[in-house]
Structures are given as C-alpha cells and as structure tokens.
C-alpha cells in the first residue's frame, strides 16, 4: 500500500521551531499543499517576515527572500513587477503587517499588486516575547499591556481584512481560521483561490488567518482555541470581504 498521507513537496523535511499548539505549522502545510496542487513550486518565491515566521524560508522548498520588518509587500511588489511570471507570496504576522508594515500592505493592495499576502493574526507579538499588537483585544494582557490593553490609550484592534476591503481597487480579501478541521478546509480553499487569482494575473489577494499563540497568551493549546472562538472570532468575523467577481458585478451595475 502506498502512502496516503505525506508532506507536501513544497515543504522541506525539517522540524519547525514553532511552539506546541501554534497554528503556523498548519498554515505552512496548507500553503505547501496549494503550491503542490497548482504545480507552481518551480516558479514560486516566498517572502518571510520578521516575527515568528522569520525562519519560514527553512520550511518551504521554493525560492525565498527574507524581508525587513513589515516590508514584505514592498519586496513582493519589486519581484512581481520585474518578474510577473513568478508566483509570489508574503507570509506575515500581525506586528509585521498591521503595525510596522501597515503602509506597505495598504499601498500594495491599493495598487492591486498581483501577489498573495498570508496574514497570520494571533493578536500578539510572538517572537519578541508577547508584546501588544495592533490586533490585541481590549483588556488582553501582554508584556507591554500588563494590565490589559487599554483602548483609551491604544485604540481598538485593527480589522485588517475590513480595512483593506474598503479600498476601491479590485482584490480578494478574506478572513479564515485554522482552529477546527472545517475551518482548516475553508482556509485551504481560500488560499487556493488567492493563488489562483494571482496565477490568472487578476488581483491582489490577502488571506487573514486568525491563529492561536498559547505560549504568549499563557494558555494551553485547547484553551487557546476556546479563547479564539469566544473572544477573537466575534471581533474578527470570518468570510470573504471582497472578491474580484463582486467588483465586476458592481461595475456592471454602474
């Protein structure tokens, strides 16, 4: 009997450095599967962020560049503009994309750059040790909000998918999660859709994935999933916020 379950070709055969209960591994795998299924590994370039996924280039068996903090969308723009035939994805966390790199992601999305951004939102800075992120929930304790996020001082968590979907430029913007198998399947579909739009040269795409960080949340993996469901998902609703088809429908009506 042959293998029925194996590592995607697009992933390398090494153990990741991610913490137990972290969802990066699942997301990596989904991206790897999509790359395999679309048969694009030989022309794909990934861009690693600064954050927990800084070493993502060790786990994908395609070309990779490593960005400065927040600048992955600008690098993806550079690659995509000079080599439109390459498939380019960025893999960024919430500090990287929604804080220091907010300018880069908004403008890349608004220019309609034809790459795919994978945005892992776990409401905290992971690699630097659990500091407050732009997506940290009100009252959530972090090492830089020890009494809980005070929204009087730091505002409300940023909903990136909604923010980007407000841009008039065509795009595919969706929010998914990977805390349960059914959500994992949906996330994979969303990723495949995003890469497909890119293959067609259609539009910018961003897949936000609401994720867990048991280590920095100070929870067991199971509690982290529960907290995600009860606290994060009501504030960060799942679903497609924008699709290019919609934009077509709107312009057809106009």
């Amino acid at each position: 009997m042959g293998k029925t379950f194996q590592k995607p070709e697009a992933l390398t055969d090494v153990h990741t450095h991610y913490c137990p209960g972290c969802t990066h591994g699942v997301i990596h795998r989904l991206v790897g599967e999509v790359i395999d299924e679309l048969g694009i590994r030989g022309r794909t370039v990934g861009i690693a962020p600064v954050g927990c996924a800084v070493l993502a280039y060790n786990y994908f068996s395609c070309d990779f560049q490593e960005a400065a903090h927040g600048r992955a969308p600008a690098m993806a723009t550079g690659i995509k503009r000079v080599r439109p035939d390459l498939m380019v994805f960025t893999y960024q966390g919430d500090g990287d994309l929604a804080s220091i790199g907010m300018g880069e992601i908004i403008h890349a999305a608004n220019r309609g750059e034809k790459f795919t951004a994978i945005f892992v939102n776990n409401a905290v800075y992971g690699m630097t040790g659990g500091q407050m992120a732009p997506t940290t929930m009100p009252g959530q304790r972090t090492t830089t909000s020890p009494l809980g996020r005070n929204t009087e001082e730091t505002g409300m968590p940023i909903r990136v998918a909604e923010l980007l979907s407000s841009l008039a430029t065509e795009g595919y913007i969706t929010r998914q999660t990977v805390i349960k198998p059914k959500f994992i399947n949906r996330t994979k579909k969303a990723l495949k859709k995003a890469f497909t739009y890119q293959m067609e040269g259609r539009c910018f795409s961003l897949v936000e994935v609401v994720s867990t960080c048991p280590t920095n949340w100070g929870m067991t993996p199971l509690d982290a999933i529960k907290w995600t469901e009860e606290t994060l998902l009501p504030y960060f609703p799942l679903g497609d916020f924008k699709t290019p088809e919609e934009a077509e429908a709107v312009s057809a009506n106009a």
């Binding site: 960005a67 600008a74 723009t77 550079g78």
Partner: peptide, 26 residues
C-alpha cells in the same frame, strides 16, 4: 521597462531589494 512610483522611500528600497533578489537589474 518597469517604472513604479512607490509610496515612500522606505518601500522603494525594498522594491529594489525584491527585484534585485529576483536577479533583475534595478
């Protein structure tokens, strides 16, 4: 050729990094 006005010099620097990393003159 490719001409792009970036949103800032910060971004432009990384557009160069991306393009140069992909092996193109920039």
């Amino acid at each position: 050729g490719v001409f792009l006005q970036g949103e800032s010099e910060v971004a432009v620097g990384y557009m160069l990094f991306g393009a140069a990393g992909a092996g193109e003159r920039v």
